[in-house]
């Protein structure tokens, strides 16, 4: 079975709830007493975040995703990660997938660095034994030293990011999904991190990265997708799409 992603007619609707629709009391009363009113005063709005996506990504693809804020890039990445379920359409992901989105969000502030390595590792679907094996290497890479056994609430924001980065990049997924290139820590660490991330990119069979940087997209990807308003505007070689996209953006 080869690694790949198949997407057919994928739609994602985001429900937006008003206060009324979040209250069960109001819902019940509305239905019983003012049945007619509720039909007119519809408080349930859905935003069509992704519209009819059709895409096939195969092993070897390095996909860069371009688009304005709100174009649906992050939603798309989260759908790939299985966080958001498609409202309709088909999504097949073959192979293990890791997403570096909102890194560090799942950390437990009261737990120690060491405990957080296990927690995050398991959330990334790494087997417990693998985490235990990689533990020392992760601690060393994060340069946290003795801090690793202190609750992470005592860490500086740079230390937190270093820890999260070290955990995330210790996984070896078939498919790597990234929201913006990660750059963490001071200058020294950044260099180290860059190398590690590049390594990860190279060892993954598929890389999907959303970015705003032309330089980066050209450096990493061999295929670029331009998204706007939840739709794919263009899908082609980095050269073609970058010229069009950045040409448009500059105008």
């Amino acid at each position: 079975m080869s690694v790949g992603i198949e997407i057919k007619h994928l739609n994602v609707d985001f429900p937006v709830y008003s206060n009324t629709s979040r209250s069960i009391k109001k819902q019940i009363f509305k239905k019983n007493l003012f049945k007619r009113v509720s039909k007119i005063d519809s408080t349930h709005v859905a935003v069509n975040a992704l519209k009819n996506l059709n895409l096939s990504i195969t092993s070897g693809d390095r996909v860069g995703i371009l688009g304005k804020n709100g174009a649906g890039k992050s939603t798309f990445l989260r759908v790939l990660n299985g966080v958001y379920q498609p409202s309709s359409g088909e999504l097949i992901v073959r192979g293990s997938l890791n997403a570096l989105i909102d890194i560090g969000l799942g950390l437990d502030a009261e737990a120690t660095g060491r405990e957080n390595i296990f927690l995050q590792g398991l959330l990334l679907r790494m087997p417990y034994e693998t985490i235990a094996l990689k533990l020392e290497e992760i601690i060393e890479f994060s340069e946290l030293g003795e801090f690793i056994d202190l609750p992470i609430s005592s860490y500086s924001s740079g230390m937190l990011l270093r820890l999260a980065f070290s955990i995330y990049t210790s996984a070896e997924p078939d498919i790597l999904v990234m929201d913006e290139w990660l750059s963490v820590g001071d200058l020294n660490f950044q260099k180290k991190a860059e190398g590690r991330l590049l390594n990860m990119v190279e060892s993954s069979q598929i890389v999907i990265m959303a970015s705003h940087s032309e330089e980066l997209v050209r450096a990493i990807s061999n295929r670029v997708i331009w998204m706007d308003g939840g739709e794919i505007v263009m899908d082609g070689t980095p050269d073609d799409v970058c010229k069009k996209y950045f040409g448009c953006a500059n105008e």
Binding site: G82, V83, I101
Partner: peptide, 9 residues
Amino acid sequence: ATIIRQANA
């Protein structure tokens, strides 16, 4: 919430 938005367990 933060974990759910990030991981697909």
